[in-house]
């Protein structure tokens, strides 16, 4: 029913923070997270009439966010690589200020950096399960895979992350 379709503004008010958090954890870049949030809601607006079940709006929106995040992050990565190749030297990162050096030791950054070294699929599973506290069923719908696969891959991803953080026993 057309009347039952939620308004995009309403969806935006409800979920834009969640989508932004997801994108920020996925890319660790404020700029990319903003791009992903914007793109996600524009895509959602175009596909809103395809939404059949209003109860599934959250997982539907996050599956769009996930696809958008993967696309944009990949595009940015390729762009960076091309710039690097064309200039024949690695792109210099901004020299950290003393305060940032102190902050570098913060735990959240250690975890975020470890998260960034994981594969896209593993990273999304950890974000959904541990940072956004979604259920296995919700994560399975977002990723478009079976629940068993989510469970299996989640344990594997966590083991990899622990190794990266240095908590592997």
């Amino acid at each position: 029913m057309h009347q039952d379709i939620p308004k995009i503004e309403h969806l935006y008010d409800c979920y834009h923070r969640d989508v932004y958090h997801f994108a920020l954890y996925y890319t660790n870049s404020k700029q990319e997270a903003e791009d992903i949030t914007q793109e996600t809601f524009f895509k959602a607006m175009k596909q809103l009439d395809k939404l059949k079940d209003n109860d599934k709006v959250k997982t539907w929106l996050f599956s769009i966010a996930r696809n958008t995040a993967v696309d944009i992050h990949r595009r940015q990565k390729i762009k960076r690589l091309i710039t690097e190749k064309l200039s024949w030297q690695p792109v210099l990162k901004e020299v950290p200020k003393p305060l940032e050096i102190v902050e570098k030791n913060e735990q959240w950054q250690t975890v975020q950096e470890a998260l960034m070294t994981l594969k896209s699929h593993d990273r999304i599973i950890i974000i959904c399960r541990m940072l956004k506290d979604y259920t296995i069923q919700e994560t399975a719908v977002i990723l478009g895979i079976s629940e068993v696969k989510v469970r299996v891959d989640f344990h594997r991803a966590m083991a990899r992350l622990r190794k990266k953080v240095g908590r592997d026993d």
Partner: peptide, 10 residues
């Protein structure tokens, strides 16, 4: 389901 053999079975 939710047993140690789940990963291997899958």
């Amino acid at each position: 389901n939710n047993k140690p053999l789940e990963a291997k079975t899958f």
